[in-house]
Design a protein around this nucleic acid. Structure first.
Lengths: 231, 231
DNA sequence: TGACACAATATGTCTATACATAATAGCGTA
DNA sequence: TACGCTATTATGTATAGACATATTGTGTCA
């Protein structure tokens, strides 16, 4: 009976349900893997996988010897996919457009040098481009590429393919830092077709290849943009 | 030899390294689990776990029978922790302050009713509050709680403890939708101590308990706020 | 009483094996 | 050639058993 195919999914969802329905209260210790394995008629490894996923979701906290307890303040995390702009636009059912604006090689200085941990004067390629959804501006891209780390970027042609797309295929990264915030539109206002000072949604990203910075990019969206995720 | 303690971490990191160093190029098929198990002197299950994690990170794509290949456009995902405001402020080393602003029970209507999938007139408790970091406004919270789903919220006292904190301990959620965007400050400007129309960073969240909406909240931050994550 | 060592314990990980399942590739037939 | 069935194959999941490791709690000794 209940040849219930006690898969780790079943177990995970059932435990999740018990937490949601307050059978197991926040902070409470839940039965050990062995006990649950008994209850569900599964192997401990199966229960382990179920609990491990719940812990990743932040629904429970696990500690050796201490056991598993329902998270008191479920510090859950939202996950946002970071796709290519092109894919993002196309996924919304619109036609992607790309407009190259400018490119120049400069020496690192000031805030940019500091944020990248570079000595003043390190050579950077500074690229600006505009991404369109249909005929409407979608994202203004303002990017610095560290030529020491990615020498090939020196001569890359960004007039047809965006530097982002070029980079993901050419220079994989190992670490990254993302930050998102609201700002008032500055010089990019004209490219985005909005008034100077209008609110914009800014995403900044720095990527590294094992301690060496690859690129710093500032992606500016008009305020109609929404970054959405579900869980 | 290489009694190398071939843990799944070791394997995962080594594969990750090979991808980063372009030993295995984007789009390329990498050896099967069996082969890798052989190479690393591990069981297939161990290799499986390593690859499964890499797939979750978006670094590789796996399909039955087709095998595992290096993601062409690594659609990686950034994960943002969604902590309690209080913890967020305290983690920044500042003193958390809370100011209750208003609370009223209203009937659902218009956009709010629509977004929550509620019939017009469903009873909601509408709460407004301000969260402070030190003496500076940190977040303006504008929340609707669906009383059908959380009857206890009818009489809860939000003058000392914020509705967010009350909810996470009282009404765990099973699903959620997050969205983030930039906007121009409206009526909340005065509470945040900024000029009307100044850019603000807005986080909206809807949570559900198994198809039943719990709450809709709009969290408004002054533009100095940054949402940051690393990976 | 306090500090420290140690045993007990729950989770963490690995192995070997088996069967399940999705998806491809190839074969045979119309 | 086109279509559809089938065998094959790589991943997906489950199992029992074992050992590893972190952490708690206890007991001992100063």
């Amino acid at each position: 009976m209940t040849r219930s195919r006690a898969s780790y999914r079943t177990i995970r969802d059932e435990i999740s349900r018990r937490i949601a329905s307050r059978v197991w209260l926040p902070g409470a210790l839940i039965p050990g893997e062995e006990a649950l394995a008994g209850e569900f008629g599964a192997a401990r490894a199966t229960v382990n996988r179920a609990l491990r996923e719940l812990a990743e979701q932040g629904l429970v906290e696990r500690r050796r010897k201490a056991g598993t307890r329902v998270a008191l303040h479920p510090v859950r995390e939202a996950r946002f996919a970071i796709p290519l702009v092109r894919h993002e636009v196309e996924a919304a059912g619109q036609v992607y457009g790309y407009r190259f604006l400018s490119s120049v090689v400069v020496g690192a200085k000031g805030q940019v040098a500091e944020r990248l941990g570079l000595a003043d004067g390190a050579r950077l390629r500074h690229v600006q481009a505009l991404h369109l959804a249909g005929s409407a501006p979608f994202q203004f891209e303002d990017r610095y590429i560290i030529l020491d780390t990615v020498p090939a970027a020196q001569d890359a042609d960004f007039s047809a393919i965006g530097p982002n797309e070029w980079l993901v295929e050419t220079a994989p990264f190992t670490h990254a830092e993302f930050s998102f915030f609201a700002d008032a539109a500055g010089k990019e206002a004209q490219h985005l077709g909005i008034a100077p000072g209008a609110p914009v949604f800014v995403g900044e990203r720095i990527t590294w290849l094992a301690e060496r910075p690859i690129t710093l990019v500032r992606m500016v969206h008009p305020s109609r943009y929404r970054m959405v995720t579900r869980l």
